[in-house]
Design a protein around this nucleic acid. Structure first.
Lengths: 221, 221
DNA sequence: TCAAAAGTGTTTGCTATACACCCATGA
DNA sequence: TCATGGGTGTATAGCAAACACTTTTGA
């Protein structure tokens, strides 16, 4: 047991994990096995341990849920309304993560009965204030496409320009002119040809590109 | 006394309060009366009470330190390295506030021996990781000038276009062309003439303007 | 009448957009 | 040879940047 002179809240992290699957922007939800909101879908997350930073807690949760490490992870916002959790005062630091569709091996962890990917426009009812978190994360993702190279984090190691354009079109929900898109993306000089090509049918093969430095998300303004 | 099955961190808010004073961007610091870092300068802040939201805690701290209410306040980032406070595990939700130079009545509160305004380029050594918070807040402020009308929050109720331009020049540390600035700011249609003028010497009086809706900070991209 | 800050337009360059056809391949 | 997606250039419009003189006032 741990005792304090004043009451202390719990601190947790929840993660909005975005990925492109089946030509849609999807995010990972888990079905809660325990109350409160037992049986509801919720964002993956959990308590911050006393000996780990909040970033490390988020990385740990992400690894536990998806098995992936070294993906893009960014602190989003901290939620702390007094009664957002019916059990006790809980303050949640939300993160958002972007993972390339190639890494996907979702494993239901001990906290969750089930995990699944949901498209943004067909989300189920959600536990806690998770709908608000998802809305904020989505706005941030869309805004960042405009002034950063964050979308490249959703690409596998090698990809065609058409595939990259498709990711932009899916997230922005808009068609983009092919020539203008290619001019723009090549001018950034953040990707380079791998020398390889991808053959996918009875048409000209596409050049494969790779991000030069996956660690770096450029602010391009 | 309060007891928990697992250890719980403390949660605090710290606030970076910016204002323009003496033609410089300054922020409010307090001198700590108690250990740790007794005698060091630090950001104003304090514990989040169990029955108030984090936003409300930040508003309360801001009011206690400055006596002002209804100023611009935005959540900045949450800091949670395990040993950032030597006493116990403390997670701090940092906010940044912008206040107009006219409201300034700083009152040393009970937590602080002293409070004073410091220019960004002459900051003293700071307690905890407050230097990092200030750096992040400053970057955010500079970035937001580019795509929002946030700087208007630093203006008094009535101001001249020259005064507004000066605020931009101070924050961006760059000279701006007067004609281009005026064209740009008037095209935003966020300010309007009050009909009054300001006479300040042996030259032509300047028209006074006011922000149309101070609650609203427009994203202008 | 002089000094000082307020106020005002036009030209130029750059970036974003619109737009249509040829290329390489497999069936 | 045909269907399919890959790949390429140019013209136009809209926005941002450069740039200098007149106006109004008080001393």
């Amino acid at each position: 047991m741990y005792t304090y002179e004043y009451p202390h809240p719990s601190v947790t992290t929840d993660i909005i994990i975005f990925s492109i699957r089946e030509k849609q922007l999807k995010l990972l939800l888990i079905k809660r096995k325990e109350p409160p909101f037992q049986g509801s879908w919720a964002l993956p997350g959990g308590f911050v341990n006393m000996d780990e930073s909040i970033d490390d807690a988020a990385k740990r949760e992400l690894a536990e849920e998806t098995g992936v490490r070294d993906v893009y992870l960014e602190q989003l916002y901290t939620y702390g309304e007094p009664n957002r959790d019916p059990r006790e005062r809980v303050i949640t630091v939300a993160y958002f993560a972007l993972i390339a569709s190639e890494h996907l091996h979702v494993q239901a962890s001990s906290d969750a009965a089930e995990a699944d990917w949901f498209a943004m426009d067909t989300l189920p009812d959600l536990a806690f204030d998770h709908d608000e978190m998802i809305k904020t994360a989505h706005q941030r993702l869309v805004a960042k496409l405009d002034y950063s190279t964050i979308a490249f984090q959703l690409m596998p190691q090698q990809f065609t320009l058409s595939a990259l354009q498709e990711v932009y079109e899916i997230i922005l929900q808009a068609e983009i002119d092919k020539r203008n898109f290619r001019k723009w993306v090549l001018a950034l000089e953040n990707i380079e040809e791998t020398g390889e090509t991808l053959r996918t049918g009875s048409h000209r093969p596409a050049k494969l590109y790779a991000v030069k430095d996956m660690e770096k998300v450029d602010i391009i303004k």
